[in-house]
C-alpha cells in the first residue's frame, strides 16, 4: 500500500513538475543565442526555422548615424501588437544578441534603451507575439569608431 501511495503521490506531482520544467525551458536565459558570434547564428539559435515576418507594425527608431557608438539610443515599437517578448541584435557586435525582454501583462509594446555598436551595420528586432507569430524589423546604423559590444 505504501508503495502504491508513493506512486499516486508521484503521479499527482508529475503535471506540476512537467509544467515547471516547461516554464523553465521557456523562460530561461537564451544561452545558445548569446554564445553565437554571427547575426545569422544568433537568430537561428533563438528562433530556428520559424518564419519571421517583416512587418511595418514593428519599427526600430535609431539614428542613421550615431555620434557615440557606446551609447546608441534605440526605440522599438510594435504599435500595440500583443508582444510577449522582444529580442534585439547588432550585426557586427562580438555578441550579436543584445538582449531579450519578456513583457508582463499590460506592458505597452515599446521599449527605449541604449546599446553599444562595435561597427556600422544592421540592428535587428524580433517581436514574439501572443499568437506565436514572429515579427522582424531591421535598420542600419552608421558609427565612426565602434564600441566593444
Amino acid at each position: 500500500m505504501a508503495s502504491r501511495r508513493r506512486l499516486l503521490a508521484w503521479l499527482a506531482a508529475l503535471p506540476a513538475a512537467w509544467l515547471a520544467a516547461r516554464a523553465a525551458a521557456r523562460e530561461g536565459r537564451p544561452l545558445t543565442a548569446f554564445a553565437a558570434t554571427s547575426l545569422e547564428d544568433a537568430l537561428r539559435a533563438q528562433y530556428g526555422d520559424r518564419p519571421r515576418l517583416r512587418d511595418a507594425a514593428l519599427r526600430i527608431e535609431a539614428p542613421q548615424s550615431a555620434d557615440n557608438a557606446a551609447q546608441v539610443p534605440l526605440r522599438i515599437d510594435a504599435r500595440s501588437r500583443p508582444v510577449l517578448a522582444l529580442t534585439l541584435f547588432a550585426e557586427h557586435n562580438p555578441v550579436p544578441l543584445l538582449g531579450r525582454w519578456r513583457f508582463g501583462e499590460g506592458v505597452e509594446a515599446w521599449l527605449a534603451l541604449r546599446i553599444k555598436l562595435a561597427a556600422s551595420g544592421r540592428v535587428c528586432a524580433v517581436a514574439e507575439l501572443a499568437d506565436g507569430a514572429l515579427l522582424y524589423a531591421e535598420t542600419r546604423v552608421e558609427v565612426g569608431t565602434g564600441a566593444c559590444g
Partner: peptide
C-alpha cells in the same frame, strides 16, 4: 506583478537606461 524580465548580453550600454510604460 512582473513588468519586464530581461536577459542582457554585453552589448547594452554602460549605465543601462530603460524607458517603457504599462
Amino acid at each position: 506583478h512582473e513588468l519586464l524580465q530581461a536577459d542582457f548580453g554585453p552589448g547594452i550600454a554602460r549605465n543601462p537606461f530603460h524607458h517603457f510604460a504599462f
